[in-house]
Write a protein that binds this DNA or RNA. Sequence first.
DNA 1: GCAGCAAATGATATCGATATCAAGATATCG
DNA 2: CGATATCTTGATATCGATATCATTTGCTGC
Lengths: 319, 319
Amino acid sequence: MADLAQLADVSKITVSRALSDSPLVNRETRDRIQALAREHGYKLNVSARNLRLRRSYTVAVIVEMKPSNDRTMFDPYPLVLLGGISQELTAAGYSVLLTTRQGATAAAVQAADGLILLGQGVHQDAVRRFDKLGLPMVVWGARGEHDEHTIVGSDNRAGGAAVARHFVSKGRRNPIFIGNPGHLEIFERLSGFVDESAVHGIKPLLIRRDEFTVASGIDAVESLAARGVAFDAIFACSDLLAMGAIRALDALGRKVPKDVSVIGYDDMPLAASFMPPLSSVRQDWQAGGTLLARKVLGLIQGEDVGSEVLPVELVVRNT
Amino acid sequence: MADLAQLADVSKITVSRALSDSPLVNRETRDRIQALAREHGYKLNVSARNLRLRRSYTVAVIVEMKPSNDRTMFDPYPLVLLGGISQELTAAGYSVLLTTRQGATAAAVQAADGLILLGQGVHQDAVRRFDKLGLPMVVWGARGEHDEHTIVGSDNRAGGAAVARHFVSKGRRNPIFIGNPGHLEIFERLSGFVDESAVHGIKPLLIRRDEFTVASGIDAVESLAARGVAFDAIFACSDLLAMGAIRALDALGRKVPKDVSVIGYDDMPLAASFMPPLSSVRQDWQAGGTLLARKVLGLIQGEDVGSEVLPVELVVRNT
DNA sequence: GCAGCAAATGATATCGATATCAAGATATCG
DNA sequence: CGATATCTTGATATCGATATCATTTGCTGC
């Protein structure tokens, strides 16, 4: 900037003002300086600006990425969320600092202006840990009873309820829920499902499975069959579980959807091309990401943003 | 730091040294200062340090994230890569700055110490554009003829060749390749496939399809059938294409793998659970991410790292 | 013709860290 | 005992931007 100042025969501060489009400087001067800056390939030193402004214009996104074949890493979900976040923040002139939980102690993270927490396993302890940083923070997921932080998530309860209503409309009386209600989001799906079923005098059976894999879905149905449990509908809390379930049902000679209705969750791209095309509950992750970003930005600006729940949509296909 | 200096009754610079574990300061003093820092929740101001050191300790990762249902956004691939990158960089004390191509003009990106380019569509023009930033840069993908930049990718050519050999070993004489050789990586797979086939006197047929979707795979096989083309093997350059192809073959009454062998690419988690379990070429993305990160770090340190090609593995299952 | 005001620019201090060089304290040695 | 080396600490300048207050210039209106 000092160099530019010399070139333009003005002071450093005028250059600074010109480059930030300040109305304090004559339009002519401003254009001249901006042209010079372009011409000489001037690049703002972000560190210097941030130091002076006491801001980093950076939002840290903390993703849970476990090494192995965990759901989080392989499902499209976090990436689409990241896409939405990245787009929105970038547009607002912020940068996205991506970290795993382990790396979150890095100095750069602590210097962030805000925090976004992703990952289904975001439990209270993790939230509290990051809360101590004292940064504006938004969490993706479901809202627990005593949560005070800002949460953005999709309406898991409504999703569960919609599935329950669908099953009822198909005359199903003995539905199964497969999943891990230990995760708050899954628990919400289960609650919505159970509550809505109860309205119609139906009591679903819970088969707890911790892994969100095809194998796990197969296993769940096999264990049901082995135990001789009667059922005519399955609500799996992930599409992979649902696919596994259908595979297992097929092997058992039970027809989907004639004998058993099956509905998955997430509506991953493959669901539509599954054979048979899988019915599923869709959440709009891109929108989720956008919203997460807007909320942090709001918090950073000192606004009073509340938590928000995004609608979901039951996509009925052939199962 | 000035406050800590007062508290410890030393100078700022001693505090600075103590906190960075400099051997220049007495162990006792150092411990005392570090204890004080912890106690008072001192946080390093990253901007200030970066300003002084003329470094940002940040590597920008530029991902192509197109809005719609593009392959990039939904496949597990970039996320796993990101996981590897993030892990490695974080361990080295660097931060990961995630951006889309559009956001890459942001000041923070230009301030990065290095650049990693991801996305199958990384063409020459994009590479050149970012090259102008003059930063250490590593690209994921395949190596073009005139490429001078550092490239990390998996051995697409070997992948294609392995598939060709497999087909030959199964006695297949009329193989089809489905995919878009416009992408350099895909082109390499095709080349390896074609060259290795030629060794055995076989000439594959190329069906060009630009989308990496199940629908596209179905469409490809249907068009083959409509044109009355004879074939007994399909090498699809993505698992989704392969799944679509198998679906379509099924509809046409052709058995897999009895009548037609099918092999996909990427070995996505679902491939193993597909019905029938899909044979596929696997690349180790986690390792790729790690390697990408190491290369940039090397470049940043001024080392002379070369390009590198990672091995792939043909996973033969039931197709 | 001069006070008063607006527009444009500048001088200086500052953000919070580290590099460089200087200097005091202590130890070692012939 | 003085000289030299070693250990430890400090003073000062600096990284590159912006906030604040000051100043200059040109113009308006009575």
